[in-house]
Design a protein around this nucleic acid. Structure first.
Length: 679
DNA sequence: CAGAGCTGTCATATC
DNA sequence: AGGATATGACAGCTC
């Protein structure tokens, strides 16, 4: 604790705290992963505390004015409100605040932490585990597990996992601080050999033992563990929520970072065993008597000493720290390099540590850290919204800042938003939707298009750990949905079935950026907030289904707001496209009409010309006829009739009259007035 | 670099 | 009255 204070005061920063926790195997990540967004109130408050302007005023402006931790609002279908403090975040916040740290971001705890929940260890036997699972990996947040309950503050130490590992571990000499890299390497080798010699079982065996051990411990500590395990999910939620309430009342709030570290040291999978393979043996123990694991022989104090200053690390690794090198290292390796090698000349062992941190589907804060800049603390709050490995705070900030958006709906668009299924043997099609139980409304394709999300059933939360498939097989179907947020950029991309994922031909960041570029902004937003539906679903969903979906599933206000925005924008986008299409059609139709009318006009003109021509012909014929008639006519005196003075007029009875023109003109005025009849 | 075209989004009107 | 739809206007992006 003292070191933590020093570390913080030295500018180590929050990120280092999270990194340390992450190194310790807890994997307290800056990204949310399974977590809902952080509480807006906290975000605002902590932003103020941080004193840094947010780059996402837009995002903040969209935050609901109220809300609790994470999925505030709907923790349970019955409407039970969540326990705002029943979470690891709450613990950490209090703990770190006690250290004078103004802010701790929303954290992510997954992997083995979740196992305790999935295995029915909701009694809080692991204390922190329960808290972590309840807040982080627990899909249903605090309703799932009892944070710090049951097992009490030292639950981590009494963890069956810790006990189990301690039994397996040989007596290890007291950790010593390495004085040089070479010595550290030697010790590391020795340590690795010991570890390998002791723990040569398969991961699956260990996981099975862990699960069984958790259950046993559950029975020991709570006595009703089986009852809890046998209870319905809703009942389990009630039980754990009641524990949360107890926790709220302060009866068992004594979790500390020490506990956290101790607990971490007892976890075999993700922490020290693997760390020890790749890092100099950081020996010794936490000075305050923390029951550090002798088996793993890792000292967080040393880790802290190696990882003193974020800014220093940034200066030392200006090029590599925040850039993913696709060829030489995985992101985890880079992170470790950044985190542990304050000496730039000290090279990182090229050991594959993917067993420590599954890369693709579990890119964690380490990944984020590459993208953080010197103003990283201004972005920490935004990191809280980051739920995907490919997001960095800038991206998230921009996501919510940029006024223009691409909801990903296009008449011709075919964004590939499918979730990569790491294990193709587990289909999601027959398990219903991700928090969307209407089988008629959600197809398999829709599921693949879901942008993120979690399943609201807390009991189904578990980490996608291959070693635990035997014990948690029934839940694995959802694990792909819950934990695998890798998105194909190419539909034909082979499914990443291996934990060791290599970024194809380009840097990880570039790859992720490209991947994200394939997603619309709304899709990215939905992904960031773990909206358990695809944008396409949200938009195309019928109104009734949409409304029932909003009311049926645990969605935070922010999620609901985003979903509605996505639907509104998507609908409007389609409407705008249709409108433009109609407008274009109208324009085209009008152009056709114009052409048709012009053609008709020309036809009429031609007809008119022909008629005029015919009329002229007729007039000429009439004139000739009249001339011929008058040439033959004689008056009474035998003189020829002047055609200029007289005109022929045909009467009704067929007779012709020779009428003087002046009479003809006046006769028009006076009908019936006729001249003299001529023959 | 300017401009046209396309697209997404918002505000508002209309249904 | 409220939601869905239509549309004008604007801005960003691409060519």
């Amino acid at each position: 604790m003292k070191l933590l204070k020093q570390w913080w005061s030295a500018g180590g920063g929050l990120l280092h705290l999270t990194m340390l926790l992450s190194l310790a195997g807890l994997r307290v990540d800056l990204d949310l992963y399974l977590l809902p967004p952080p509480p807006p109130t906290l975000l605002r408050d902590e932003l103020l505390l941080l004193g840094g302007p947010t780059r996402s005023a837009y995002a903040l402006s969209r935050f609901p004015a109220s809300g609790g931790w994470g999925r505030a609002g709907r923790l349970h279908p019955k409407g039970r409100e969540p326990d705002p403090t029943a979470s690891l975040e709450g613990h950490l916040l209090r703990e770190v605040r006690a250290l004078g740290v103004p802010f701790i971001p929303y954290t992510r705890v997954d992997a083995w932490l979740v196992h305790s929940v999935a295995a029915g260890d909701a009694t809080g036997a692991h204390g922190l585990l329960g808290a972590a699972a309840s807040s982080g990996a627990g899909v249903d947040g605090g309703s799932q597990a009892a944070p710090g309950g049951g097992g009490g503050p030292r639950a981590g130490r009494s963890s069956p996992l810790a006990a189990e590992e301690e039994e397996k571990a040989p007596a290890e000499p007291t950790a010593q601080v390495p004085d040089a890299g070479g010595r550290a390497s030697q010790e590391n080798e020795v340590l690795r050999e010991k570890c390998e010699g002791v723990d040569d079982r398969s991961e699956q065996e260990k996981n099975e033992e862990r699960v069984s051990g958790q259950k046993e411990k559950l029975q020991e500590n709570n006595g009703d563990g089986n009852k809890v395990a046998d209870k319905s999910e809703w009942e389990v939620e009630k039980t754990t929520e009641s524990r949360n309430e107890r926790h709220l009342n302060g009866t068992d709030i004594s979790f500390s970072l020490e506990d956290l570290f101790q607990l971490l040291s007892s976890q075999p999978d993700y922490s020290l065993e693997n760390i020890s393979e790749d890092f100099p043996p950081v020996l010794g123990s936490i000075s305050d008597g923390m029951n550090s694991s002798t088996y793993y022989n890792v000292n967080f104090t040393q880790a802290i000493s190696h990882d003193v200053n974020l800014h220093e690390a940034m200066l030392l690794y200006p090029d590599t720290t925040f850039r993913r090198d696709p060829v030489a290292r995985t992101s985890q390796e880079q992170f470790l390099q950044w985190n542990f090698h304050s000496n730039p000349e000290q090279t990182l062992p090229e050991t594959n540590i993917t067993g420590f941190l599954p890369p693709v589907e579990h890119l964690t804060s380490q990944d984020l850290l590459y993208d953080l800049d010197a103003n990283i603390f201004d972005e920490i709050n935004l990191l809280s919204f980051v739920t995907e490995e490919s997001f960095d705070p800038m991206e998230i900030s921009q996501l919510f800042e940029e006024p223009e958006s691409d909801s990903g709906l296009s008449l011709n668009s075919s964004h590939s938003t499918s979730i990569t299924k790491c294990n193709s043997s587990h289909s999601v099609s027959d398990e219903g939707a991700i928090g969307y139980s209407n089988p008629n409304s959600l197809s398999h394709h829709d599921l693949e298009g879901a942008v993120g999300g979690y399943y609201p059933e807390p009991s189904k939360v578990c980490h996608m750990d291959q070693g635990n498939e035997t014990g948690l097989h029934g839940d694995l179907t959802f694990q792909h949905i819950l934990h695998n947020h890798t998105y194909h950029t190419q539909p034909d991309d082979p499914e990443p079935t291996s934990i060791s994922f290599s970024w194809p031909g380009k840097s990880q960041k570039a790859y992720l950026n490209d991947t994200d570029k394939s997603l619309s902004r709304d899709e990215q937003r939905a992904k960031a907030l773990h909206i358990p539906f695809s944008v396409d679903e949200i938009v195309r969903m019928p109104v009734d289904s949409f409304n029932s979906m909003l009311s049926r599933y645990y969605l935070t206000d922010l999620q609901v707001s985003l979903i509605r925005d996505i639907r509104r924008r998507g609908k409007n986008k389609v409407a705008a496209q249709n409108c433009r299409k109609r407008k274009l059609d109208m324009i085209l139709n009008l152009e056709d009409d114009v052409c048709n009318l012009q053609a008709k006009k020309e036809t009429l003109k031609r007809e008119q010309a022909q008629c005029n021509k015919a009329i002229n012909i007729m007039k000429q014929k009439l004139q000739d006829l009249c001339h011929d008639v008058f040439s033959r006519l004689k008056d009474d005196e035998g003189r020829p009739v002047n055609s200029s003075q007289y005109a022929l007029e045909c009467s009704h009875d067929g007779t012709f009259l020779i009428v003087p023109k002046e009479l003809l003109t006046s006769g028009h005025k006076k009908e019936g007035q006729k001249g003299k009849r001529k023959r």
